[in-house]
């Protein structure tokens, strides 16, 4: 097998695994049972989505996806912190 074929297949498989991980996290997010379970699912969904984008960047061989991954990581962090804070106090801004 040529190097390009190995990369294409292997990285595609990794991407598939990450998408499956996103589906499992989404299941936990929709299923609950409690609100903090859903937030944990959302956080995992974000994380695996970020990794899937990094792997997609590797597959296309371009560095352009780096910024997207970094921003998804940042927004995921902010969202989770805000939601967890809301659960604790019932308000985000105080």
């Amino acid at each position: 097998m040529s190097a390009a074929a190995i990369l294409d297949w292997g990285l595609g498989l990794a991407q598939g695994a990450l998408v499956l991980a996103m589906a499992l996290a989404a299941w936990r997010m929709l299923r609950g049972p409690r609100a903090h379970d859903r937030i944990l699912g959302l956080d995992t969904l974000y994380l695996n989505g970020m990794l899937a984008i990094v792997v997609h960047g590797m597959r296309t061989g371009s560095g352009l996806y780096f910024e997207a991954a970094l921003i998804i990581g940042m927004i995921g962090f902010t969202a989770t912190v805000a939601l967890a804070k809301f659960l604790m106090q019932g308000e985000v801004i105080q």
């Binding site: 498989l13 990794a14 991407q15 990450l18 499956l20 991980a21 499992l24 994380l47 990794l51």
Partner: peptide, 10 residues
């Protein structure tokens, strides 16, 4: 790496 991530989600 993807396998560890998938295990975590599992």
């Amino acid at each position: 790496g993807a396998a560890f991530s998938l295990t975590g989600a599992l």
